[in-house]
Structure formats: structure tokens, C-alpha cells
Design a protein around this nucleic acid. Sequence first.
RNA 1: GGUCGCAUAGCUCAGCUGGGAGAGCACUUGCCUUACAAGCAAGGGGUCAUAGGUUCGAGCCCUAUUGCGACCACCA
Length: 877
Amino acid sequence: MKKELGKTYDPQEIETGIYEMWEHGGYFKPEINPEGKPYTIVLPPPNITGQLHLGHALDCTLQDILIRYKRMQGYSVLWVPGEDHASIATEVKVTETIFAEENKTKEQVGREKFLERAWKWSDYYRNQIATQLRKIGSSLDWSRERFTMDEKLIEAVKESFISMYNKGLVYKDYRIINWCPDCKTALSDTEVDFEEESGNLWHIKYPLLDGGNFVIATTRPETMLGDTGIAVNPDDERYTALVGKTAILPLLGRELPIVADSYVDKEFGTGCLKVTPCHDINDFEIGKRHNLAQVLALDENACINENGGKYCGMDRYEARKAVLADLQEQGLIVKTEEIAHNVGHCYRCKSVVEPITSMQWFVSMKPLAEPAIEVVKNGQTVFVPDRFKKIYFTWMENVRDWCISRQLWWGHRIPAYYCDKCGYTAVAKEAPEKCAKCGCLSFTQDEDVLDTWFSSALWPFSTLGWPEDTEDLARYYPNDVLVTGFDIIFFWVARMIFSGIEHTGSPPFHHVYIHGLIRDPQGRKMSKSLGNGVDPLEVIERHGADALRAGLIAGTAAGQDIRWNESKVQAYRNFCNKLNNAARFALINLDGYDPSTTVPVESLESMDKWVISRTNDIVKEVSANLDKYELGIAFEKLYSFFWDEFCDWYIELVKLRLSGEDGSSKLAAQWTLYHVFIKLLKLLHPFMPYITEHIYSCFIDDEKLITASWPEFSEAYCYAKEEAEIGEVMAAIKAVRNARAEQGIAPSKKSTLYIAAQKEWVDVFNANLETICRLASASHAEVVLPGFEIGDSLVVSIKSSTITIPLGDLIDKEKELKRLETEKSKTAKEAERLSVKLSNASFIEKAPQAIVDGEKRKLADAQALLSEIELAIEKLV
RNA sequence: GGUCGCAUAGCUCAGCUGGGAGAGCACUUGCCUUACAAGCAAGGGGUCAUAGGUUCGAGCCCUAUUGCGACCACCA
């Protein structure tokens, strides 16, 4: 205990050094607890498109708290860091950079050069992210760091793709998909965000071949260039006669068969639907059911193609205008209605997505979804909070096949090779030497890459070495916990679960802890476009990582959104300062104390036993909260115990003994102070790792807090009697302080206290007289016999005793009278309420005995107090 | 349209299986009391959204209503 602490807490000074010490000391490796049971958390790998935001900080903090808790409990904890290559997002950013720097498109640069740039980008940002993760305090095992584009992980992706292909779970097909005309790639259903927009619903006349016409409503008139039919509801009497006949597509003159399909809603619009199989997901299905032709009218830029006649080459919005103008001219527009409808946008670039038909790779979801639903139903995988499993189920039960090919360069290139001569498809890790069909020797690899989430889905086991049979995989898989936000359940959680089951036979983790989103002070989502994002590093610079961590998790509940306010972080920065100063106090007063000293239990005083017992309670509660993932509650308990009980009471109570002459009493106080303080540091460590480790090092040289053992609850430390005794002493001090404050008596005016205690409390008060004087601004205190009376004095009552404070010149009589009057009416009201309650027969009959007794006791107390107050009033007047 | 969440102190939010409501910030008053003014002590402030119901007893359970938010689906 040599080291000294500064007078105020300075995070800058301590954090970096401590992190390096931990990391270089190998404290983050699971091997630090070689005998321990394995415990693993899956870190959601941040993507490399930019800096970390508060959401990541929250993610990391929650996980790090769990990891540190388990590590201290002796588990062999594994937490693997890594990053995600973020195919689309990175490709967009790199393309932009290239354009800004060289004024070239990615096609002009070429695939090879482009990938070089992308790798440079990823190296830079991976580094940034790793630094940020460290600063937050994450105790990740960096020796096992992974990246989704690592060679080994590429192997895993190939293995996964090929094995699913061989089982028929991965297939290639010409189907309707979501197309982003700006990213120029296919998207999966999850990558499309629907937003409500106001638009027009145009009612357009379609002539019939045999004369007459139909009116059809549409919000996207340009897609009529791809119409290949008309559909009506089979039960719609208005149209039954027309089914089987033919309509003529205006502008292009194409013949459109009229079919009946129950998908059509009789009530909506005019009750008939133009069918555009290549540009609408539902129309695609209708087209298939009725064998309608497929006419693709848009190209990859969302411009009209050669099937669109004179509109060929126009952008989709230009074409819309032109089509409408021509229809108008021909008098075919019946009316224009304003409506609100949902429009799909690309989740990365926000462009309006076009559904179009295209040749793509898919994952067949039905067979994968079934077991994935089962493991959650039977409790192998548990969502916390429970309600999120419902969201998971509805998605899994209705999921469509997953489009996994992307027309991009940055990512895992699809391991499919096509024979240059006969087109034969070989799915394999490397290009085959010879075509199995025609014997041709040259193959071309599929140009496309896989959806980023395809590799993310393998993360929980690919990072452990799968498909190889590694030691890590055997020891640490399945993982224990995944912590993430609800926004990512479909993108990632669901896909990890079915991929894990498919490839390893087990779901990838036991618990999924879902947290909320961090919102700005106005409750809005944090986003780049609003510019309301908060950089966690700046917060760390201002208040320290410990304060940030506490500010993020204190008083939050799982799954609930968190509104960001920095004043909360500031409050926990203050708490760090409090910790620092409590530690200073301890260090000063433990000067010369030998930690190996043992003290006989008999020499411990009530106050020692009280604080030991209370700390013991807290150990039990905090551990229980952590086991239930109630991290916010756990921390708040520690916060208020440390501040309100340990600092404000215990330290104040022992001060006299620590500076006193009585050797054995002093030693007992030191022993208690030391051990309780160390225990509290341990309990706080998972939440505020830096400051606690720093302080710990001032007390103990040869051990690091990060691997110290987590305190355990013990019956031997339960001192209910002493808890009650000190509770009474505290009540006495509070009562006197309160009375004096209400009377406006200056703290410098010391008084005498006469404590008339019930027999069994006499010893307790006698043992603590000096302390009571010190804390209640008294110059003298003594225990007197019950019935003690003295004129002209202030009288306060607590459970066990009545305290008389002679007034002398201390007090204002009128004020005191007023106080007593209000006190009297309050007490009378309370007594009234209680007696009404106790006169209720059914209450007495049906309520548990303990409750009834409690109420009776309260009534007796209130009545006693009432008569005392009356007495005091009499005396005053 | 379907599903879910939230309404508690001036503000931001906790409140576990039902036993007369808590924290942080803000506010009032008094204190530089030798760990800490980023502090100490005392205090004010809440018909726990509304209306019913269950219960001896409801912030908590049930029903309905209102307001806010999210997610999914989708209407051409």
C-alpha cells in the first residue's frame, strides 16, 4: 500500500496504461483460467465502413461486463474480436473514394485494382475499430482476432456454400428479386426498407380486343411496358364474363390475356389488376400460376430497355412522365388520385428499389427454418427478454428464399465455375481441371459475390476454426451468449441460428440478449444524415470510459430503447471521483496496516458487522441480477450501496476509531475497512474496469483485479442483529439532524443529547455515544432512563427510543410549535388511516398474519408518537 | 391490416413473483465538518395516462379507451 492517488479522478492518466497491462499480460485469453469451465460470448463484428458509434459502445459494455464477471468467477472465458467486411457498404464507400480521388468509375479502374483499394480501406478501418474497442475497455482476446475476409473464414464460406449446394439448399434460378439501381446489385428482402410516401394512383383505360374497355389503377405507370396480362377476382361479378378474353396494352399494342386470380382484391381501386410479372413480386406469382409471358422492361440502371418501344433508354421517372403524357393525349387517363403507399428503399443507399426478374443464387429457407424455430421453442436458445422470440417466429415462419448473390466485387466470390464451352456448372473450392460433361479445360468463375450476411451467419463457429476440428471449436462451441440490438434479429441472429444448426448440429448460442437502440435527447434515432450521432471516443475523452460504460447501462432494462443524455455520464464520472476519494481515505487510514493481519470476530464492533453483513447482502443480490442479465439494476445497487451506505455511513462511523488510541478497536476497523473496500472494488470491476483496477493496484501489488476472485455470499457474514442495531443508531442521528435543520440551528451550535432507550438498546447506544455526538452535532450524549424529562427541549422519537435535546438558546419557539403542529396532523392522519384499515374485518381475516401485525405495530407507533407530540406541545406553551 | 412496446417527480428513466412509490439531473435551505464543493447535511415536488374489473390490498394482474413509438406485411 505505497501508491498514492490524486485528489481528483483523471481518466486520461490511467486508462491507456491499464489497458496495455491487461492485454500484454495475457489477461484476456481464456487460458488465464485453464481449469475453468468455458464461457463464450459472440461479439457482433463491427463493419468496416466507419467509426464505432454509441450503439457499439453499449454492445461492448454489456458483453464486457458479463465476460469480466465470469472471468472473475473462474470461467475460462473466450471473447473473440473481429470485423465484418460489409460488402455493399464498403463497395459504395470505396467507389466514392476512387471517384473523388481519380474521377474514375470502378469499372474504369477494374476489378483487381478496385480490390486493392478495398483492402487498403479495410486495413485502415479495422485498425481504427480495434483501437476504439480497446478504449471502451473491452477485454477481447486479440490473439484470436478475425475478419470475415480472412483466408480461413473464406474457406468456411466456401465449405458452407458447397455443402448446402450439394444438399440442394443452395440453388440458382431466374426469379424476381429486389434490385438497387444505384448499387447495381440484387438485394435480399431484409435489405429493403419500406417507407410510406405520398404518390398518385392513376386510373388508366385498357381497351378490349372485342371492344369496350377496362379501367386499371397503378402507381407505377411506366411498368405497364412490362404488362403481360390482366387479373380479376374470380368472384367479382363485374368481370366474370371477361375472363379468358383479351385486352390490348395501350401505347405498345401488346395482347393481354384476362385471367381470374383470387389474389386480386375486389375492393381496391377498380378491382382489376394489370399483371407485370417481371416488375412486381405478386405479379410474378400470378404470372406463374397462369402461364403469362415474362417481359422485362427495365435494365440494370432502371432505364427502359428495348422491350419498352419508343421509351427505350429513358430513366424510370422520365419514362413515367412520358407514358403519362402519351396516355393523357390519347384520353386514356380516367382520373388521378392521391394516395399514401409504401415504397421500398435500398437499406444502404436509400434509392428506390425495383423488383425485377434476374438470374441469382438463393438459399432455400423452408428446410432450414424448421429446426431453427424448434430450438427456440424447446428452449435450447433463449431470448432475453422473452418477447423477442415472437418476432423471431413470425419472421422465420414466413420467410422467403434468401437471395445471396450480389453483383459486387468486394466480398466472398461465389465458388461456382462455368464451363466455357458447354456452360456446365461446377460448385467447388477451386476451378475443376476438366469439365465433367464435355471435357473442356477452361472455366470461368461466377462474377458475383455473396451477401455479407452469408459469412456473418457463420461467425459463431467460423471464428473458432470451423470447418476444421479445432480445439477451440470443441471447447467453446456452442457459445453461451449473443448480445445485440433488435434491429439485427433478421439480418443476423436468425441466420446464425439456422446456419449453426445446419453446419454444426447445434444452435450457435444459448442466450440471445437483446438491447434497445440508443436515441438522441429528443428521442430520434441517431443517424449520419441527422448529424445527431455521438462519438464514444469524445465522451471517453471528456469523462472516461468507466463513466461512459456506467452511463450507458445504469438503470436500463433489456430491450428498451435508451435516450442519450450526457448528464448521466457526468454523474458516473462523479462517482469515479467518489471512488477515488474513498480509496484515498482508506489508504491514509490503513497506513501501517498489514493486510495479512487476522482479527478475532469478537473484536469486531456492531458497525463493522453491519457493513460486512450489508456487503454480503449486496454480493448476493448483484450476482443474482447479473445471472438474470439485469445489468442496469446490478450496477445501480452497487452505486447506491457504495455511496449512500459505505461512504456516507460506514466511513463516517469509523472515523473516530481509525484516528483513536484503542489499538484493538482500531485494528478491527482497519480490517473491516480493508476487506469491505476490496470486496466492493471487485464487485464494481466489471462495470468500471479502469478505475477499479487502478485503485486496486494501490492496495495490492502482486495481483490484478481483472482476475481476482468474485466475492461469494456467505451465511457466516450475516449479522442481522448488528444490522438492526446500527440501523437504530443511524435513525437516531438522522432524527436529530432533521430536528436541528428544521429549527435552523447552525451546525456550530453543539447540543447535549439525552437518549431514553428501551432496555435492550441501552448497550447499543452506549457503545456509539461518541460517534453519535460527532455525526449529530452534539457536544455530549448520554443514555438516560425511560421517562426522562427536561423542560424547554426538543423531543424526537425513533423506534427504540426518545431523544431529548435541551434547547437553551438554540431554538426558535414559534417555529418549533409550527413544526410540531404539522407533525401532529400528519401523524393523526396516518393513525386514522391505519385504524380504518384494521377495523376492516375482511382485511384481518384474509391478509397474511405478518401484514396484519405490521399494520398493528405501525398504528401503535403512530399513536405513541401522537401522544408524545401532544406532550411536547404542552410543554412548549 | 397484423404484432409488440411505452405512458411513474420539472426533465431522463428504474421499480424482480401484487403488501401505500425510487435514482440521476434540476430546485430550496444550511455547511469549505482534516477522503471528496465532481462534496456533505436537510428539504420541496407524484390522484404511477383514462375508465372499469379481480383482490382484504393494484404502479404491478384482467378488460376497454386515449396518446406516442417500433417491427412485420402490403393495395395494384
